[in-house]
Amino acid sequence: MSIRHVLLGLLAGGPSHGYDLKRRYDERFPQARPLAYGQVYTTLQRLVRDGLAAVEGTDSDSGPERTLYRSTDEGSRELAGWAEEIAPPAPFVANEIFAKVVVSILVAAAADDDRTTGAAAYLQAQRAAHMERMRELTALKTTPGADLSTVLSADYALAHLDADVRWMTTTASRLATLTAEVDAA
C-alpha cells in the first residue's frame, strides 16, 4: 500500500493535522499494517518537498503547535493518476512458507533424517496458525456493529489466508514428490 497516496487521499477531504490523518488512517484501514506517527510526518514532509502537499498553517489550541497540511493541485493530479493505475499481479511469488518447506527438506537431508516428516510437521503447524487467524478475523467481521471497512478488510485477509491453507494442503499431499526433486537437485 502506498502510504504517500493514502495520505494524499485523506487530505482530499480538506486540510488536516498529522495526528488527524493517523487517526483517520486507523479508522479507514483497520486491518492494515499500523502506521506510526513518525511515518505520517516523514511522509507529509516528503509530500511538501515534492509539491504534492503544502503547509496550510499552524495552530496550538493551547497545546503543542500543530501543522495543518493540504493537498496541492499537483497532489490531486498525482492521486487521481495513482487511483486509476491497475495494480499488476506480482510477477514472482516470494512465499516464506514454501521456502521453509524446502529448507526443512534440506535440513533433514543434511542430518540424514526422514525428509518429509519435518516439512509435514511445519505445514501442519502453519496451517493451525492460519486457521486461528481466520477464526479471529471471522469473529471481528461478525461483531455486531462492525463497520464496512473492517468487514471488507477482514474478507480480503480471509481470502488470502484461505488460499494459503489450500496451498498448504496441496503441498502436503505432494511432499514425497517435492522431496525427490529437492534431493535430485
Rank of each mutant, 00 (worst) to 15 (best):
L21F: 09
K22Q: 13
K22H: 10
R24E: 15
Y25E: 00
Y25V: 04
D26V: 14
E27P: 00
F29E: 07
F29G: 08
F29I: 04
P30Q: 03
P30M: 05
Q31P: 00
Q31S: 05
Q31F: 10
R33I: 14
A36F: 07
G38Y: 10
Q39M: 08
T42V: 06
T43V: 08
L44S: 06
L44T: 04
Q45A: 15
V48W: 01
D50L: 08
D50W: 05
D50C: 04
G51Q: 08
L52S: 01
A53K: 06
A54G: 05
A54C: 05
A54M: 04
V55E: 15
V55L: 07
E56K: 06
G57Q: 03
T58K: 07
S60L: 10
S62M: 04
E65G: 04
R66D: 01
R66Q: 11
L68R: 12
Y69H: 02
Y69C: 01
R70I: 10
S71Y: 00
S71L: 15
T72R: 00
T72H: 03
T72S: 05
E74S: 12
G75F: 03
S76Y: 00
S76Q: 12
R77S: 09
R77V: 13
E78Q: 11
L79E: 04
A80P: 00
W82E: 03
W82L: 02
W82Y: 15
A83C: 01
E85W: 01
P88R: 08
A90N: 06
P91D: 01
P91G: 02
P91Q: 07
F92I: 13
A94D: 03
N95K: 03
N95Q: 06
E96Q: 07
I97P: 00
F98H: 14
F98N: 14
F98M: 12
F98C: 09
K100R: 13
K100Y: 05
V101R: 05
V101M: 04
V101E: 04
V101C: 02
V101Q: 02
V103S: 11
S104M: 07
S104I: 08
S104K: 02
I105S: 03
I105P: 03
L106Y: 01
V107Y: 06
V107W: 07
V107T: 12
A109M: 15
A111Y: 09
D112Q: 15
D113A: 11
D114F: 07
D114L: 03
R115L: 15
R115A: 12
G118S: 11
G118W: 13
L123R: 10
Q124S: 15
A125C: 01
Q126P: 04
Q126Y: 13
Q126F: 12
H130V: 14
H130R: 11
E132D: 14
E132A: 15
E132I: 12
R133A: 14
R133E: 15
M134T: 01
R135P: 08
L137F: 00
